[in-house]
Design a binder for these strands. Sequence first.
DNA 1: GATGAATGAGGCTTCATTCAT
DNA 2: AATGAATGAAGCCTCATTCAT
Lengths: 200, 200, 200, 200
Amino acid sequence: MNTDSKHEVRVRPLRERLREETARAILVAAEEVFADKGLHDARVEEIAARAGVSVGTVYNHFEDREALLADLVESRRKELALRLDQALADHQPFETQLRSFALTVFEHFESHRAFLSILLQSDVGQPTDAMREIRARIDVLVRRGLSRKALRSDFAPLLPSMFTGALKAILMHDLRNPGELEVPERAEAAIDFFLNGAGA
Amino acid sequence: MNTDSKHEVRVRPLRERLREETARAILVAAEEVFADKGLHDARVEEIAARAGVSVGTVYNHFEDREALLADLVESRRKELALRLDQALADHQPFETQLRSFALTVFEHFESHRAFLSILLQSDVGQPTDAMREIRARIDVLVRRGLSRKALRSDFAPLLPSMFTGALKAILMHDLRNPGELEVPERAEAAIDFFLNGAGA
Amino acid sequence: MNTDSKHEVRVRPLRERLREETARAILVAAEEVFADKGLHDARVEEIAARAGVSVGTVYNHFEDREALLADLVESRRKELALRLDQALADHQPFETQLRSFALTVFEHFESHRAFLSILLQSDVGQPTDAMREIRARIDVLVRRGLSRKALRSDFAPLLPSMFTGALKAILMHDLRNPGELEVPERAEAAIDFFLNGAGA
Amino acid sequence: MNTDSKHEVRVRPLRERLREETARAILVAAEEVFADKGLHDARVEEIAARAGVSVGTVYNHFEDREALLADLVESRRKELALRLDQALADHQPFETQLRSFALTVFEHFESHRAFLSILLQSDVGQPTDAMREIRARIDVLVRRGLSRKALRSDFAPLLPSMFTGALKAILMHDLRNPGELEVPERAEAAIDFFLNGAGA
DNA sequence: GATGAATGAGGCTTCATTCAT
DNA sequence: AATGAATGAAGCCTCATTCAT
């Protein structure tokens, strides 16, 4: 018993680590396939293949296809939400927070481009939890801008959508012209556009 | 003889008109179902049912499901493209053209709201012909703005995405807050944001 | 009434002739399409189109697809049976009858190549009435050959199949090498092979 | 380590053997159903049922219905071609080779009677690869007969069709009178007829 | 746990046939 | 009687999910 528990203390973590490793590999594969093939045409078998496991293994780790997608979105969301919270945490000048926020989004996009294009797809229909949570943070940001008189109050209810629109504009441009702009330049452009517009 | 030719003039168009009527009904039903259920989950059988015809009839009018969707998109695209061209036709001041363009987009969106929100999904993955053609008109518009020094030249390559982003921002806001803004107000907001930004 | 019947005497035949003409046109078209596309892949709509009528008209003249095929086979069969009976009618020497029979088959094949390839298709599965009737005539011919000691009695039960086989051999060769042999040469070859074999 | 490699040697083949067994069962079922119902009326669902598997399983093993048929034909063809090649391999007198060839055909027909009678149908329209390959072997056989002066040179181009016709004649007879002739008798009759004809 | 073959509900599509004009 | 659009049963095929090894 004692031996057993000792044994468990040592062995479990290993197994768990392996187990988690497999799950992570599946999520990575899923992210790729969902992004490549689209939310619908991504086939479980291809995800398994790209993860180097069998279909059965996918189902050993995730309830079903939907749960896999949900977990994927959730894990990426958590990561992004965490970073966005950090960006919002410091008591910086509003514009700095804005830039920091955009930067975070673009960085996350850089490493999870695939994931974000998934999010953008689902964004239109019924908003996902992920999108909602990001929007909540944008709301916070925008309210700060308003209270600091850094944003136009006549646009108040539109501001979250506008900021999202500004970010998306740059993301879209980037999707179609990969590598044209460095990440910081993207953030800069988005903020400049959001605050000052494109009029001469 | 005379009767015959008269006959043809009358009878042919009748059947043709009925035929076209059926096709139109199917397209309308398809628009509804595609919008309700999504690009993927729309079932041909439901489209037929909602059009009040049998499945077979759908296939008498459209090669297959994909062709039906393509035709649907195409018909909406043609309609929008025509109106956008009209908006671009007059030699109005740039800002008027801009407003007119936005107005057209929002009006079109108003009458095909559900379906267009579906199309926006596919915009992310591979852009449709429809989206491409609209973008071409945006390019024209933007070039005019640049040549009239009405738009910031430092944003030149980004301007089409930015204008699209501004329109989408308002569309998104409208999707989530239906009826909050009248169509002309939407156009006004989009243009104001696009040209001047949201900074105070 | 009298007028009517007079009228009918004149008008009916015209109508009937037209009616028959249409039916004939459909049968000709059917023969072509059945032969081109095969017994199964021949589509009623294509038959109608090739006959220059609408689908509905086909169904005004024939109960259904199966009846159309049956009528087609029947009409060609009647024609062939008639001619074969003529070939068997004269009290000619056996070999002359044989040659005449073969000649008739090849001539019929020449004008209804399509039809016969239909027959050959159905021959294997369940023999059609048409094939059965032709075989009946071959049986007659063979019995004559046996009673005149012109055919080997040790082959007696096999002779009908052998004669058919000899005819088919030449038909097959002709299908693959169209125009290589004139019709009389074909008959000659078939008879020579049937009677004398291919051994040196 | 050793265990591992041993393991692989044992386990892999097991699954593979089961997999092949399933494929074979489907092919056997397909042969039956295609023969029973005809090339067209054979339903994939019935094939699956008769193989004791689900439809999906059929599609796990064969691309589609057409591929299943092709595989079936191919497997029967390979078998026959192999045996025909053996029959042609020995440097026997021509007539022995001929008899051996015919024997092989009839034996093969005996074990795949139903299916082959289906194949004969398609022989008329567009010849299958299978038929072509068999014909190629008949060509070889016939050329040998010619060079050994065992076959009539005036029939040269017709000989392959004639030999085929002689075989088919007996096959047809056999289809209509099952069990009347033993396999060797069939071969004997076919050869006798082919070489000497049916004339007294 | 991992494997991957088996499953079968459910979708798309075809085409002979009907029927209102 | 001709027309051809409408019908819908029936077939093929896909792919998420299960389960025996």
